[in-house]
Design a protein around this nucleic acid. Structure first.
Lengths: 207, 207
DNA sequence: ACCTGAACACCGTTCAAGT
DNA sequence: ACCTGAACACCGTTCAAGT
């Protein structure tokens, strides 16, 4: 097989493939290099360090996620988009934890963040509310994703949480659980947009 | 200095101290052993592996957090408790990321989880809602914590997110940002308890 | 000037050898 | 039976030596 010229794109795609196939410990500089048939140091020509490479791989994992069209209501757009982000990350189990752990600064991350802020602006939040809600939603998706990843594989510890909290309940990390929490956030945002202004931390909508 | 007898408690306390002082890469089996003046393998007498040790250390970091008294309203109890959990974790920067990354299965974690479920039960949620909301809240706190930890140190990448999302806004990982997201969740829970039952994902309280 | 790969300074964990 | 520490199989990254 002819050795293709090394590019950032090829390196990231190879790392993603390797992670999908053999799990995230397979995404070491050495093993990625071996898969590419090059010296480990050759990768450092294209990425400053492992962190930078994983940023690119994490962003690549979100490439397939499309922002929902503007014909949907803001809350539907949000829940569809974030559910798809979660799904896309889970389709790449090797990098999912990294997607959850790092800020969405890549091309796809910025594109999807912009879609979130767009939906929130349509919800009628203040500019400050838009930014803060975006960050809160990203935080929630990241955490739910991290939980799902940990609950998967053979790490049964998160399953024990379900046992501790209550029997017969939706399993930690399930899509059901994700949707529930997302609904809480969106309902909270709706309340914020409708009534509550700045200092409503302890003032309920109705007592 | 006389070498104290090795116990799980002493090992965990030493690891926590080491993490506080020199950051989380200092919490390696080898360096903890060096600090204790023992062979690295001696730790494996008391913990199955590094994961198990970090579980204990993460739980220890939450030892000082007290569950708020029952004289407060459920929503105040929640926001006080979760704010204190975040604060306690941040006081131990070495282990904060691990607190965020693992399920609250230690003694303190279970104690605090129970306090959350107690508050949510008082809010009037269904048993299933209590469990799912608990998990969603834990997810949110974990993620906000992880963001704050990453935003600190010299990882300026999360700060760039603020720049991307909008200028002059509360910084990612700030207490302000944390409180805002927490308010969203609590308001969402209030809505869930008051009106919305099972399938209200797309049915707003008011249109 | 560019690239390679040996070497450095680490890891977590296994396991054989010592007491 | 218990404990020690050498050894295994790795890391990410630096840097000197080669072309």
């Amino acid at each position: 097989m002819p050795k293709r010229a090394l590019t950032p794109e090829l390196i990231a795609a190879t790392a993603l493939e390797l992670g999908d196939r053999d799990g995230d410990p397979a995404m070491s500089m050495r093993r990625i290099a071996a898969e590419l048939g090059c010296d480990p140091m050759a990768i450092y020509r294209h990425f400053a360090n492992r962190e930078a490479l994983l940023d690119a791989v994490a962003d690549l994992a979100l490439a397939g996620v499309a922002a929902p069209g503007p014909d949907l209501r803001w809350d539907q757009r949000l829940s569809e988009l974030l559910t798809e982000v979660r799904g896309a990350a889970l389709r790449h189990p090797g990098i999912a934890a990294h997607v959850a752990a790092r800020p969405p600064l890549g091309a796809n991350g910025r594109r999807l963040s912009a879609a979130i802020t767009g939906a929130l602006a349509d919800a009628g939040l203040t500019p400050s509310g838009v930014v803060q809600s975006t960050q809160a939603l990203i935080a929630y998706v990241a955490a739910a994703l991290a939980m799902t990843v940990k609950a998967g594989a053979r790490d049964e510890r998160w399953h024990r949480v379900s046992a501790v909290l209550g029997a017969g309940m939706p399993v930690v990390g399930s899509e059901e659980q994700f949707a529930y929490g997302l609904r809480l956030m969106i309902n909270g945002i709706r309340g914020e947009a409708a009534g509550g202004g700045q200092g409503s931390v302890h003032s309920p909508i109705r007592e």
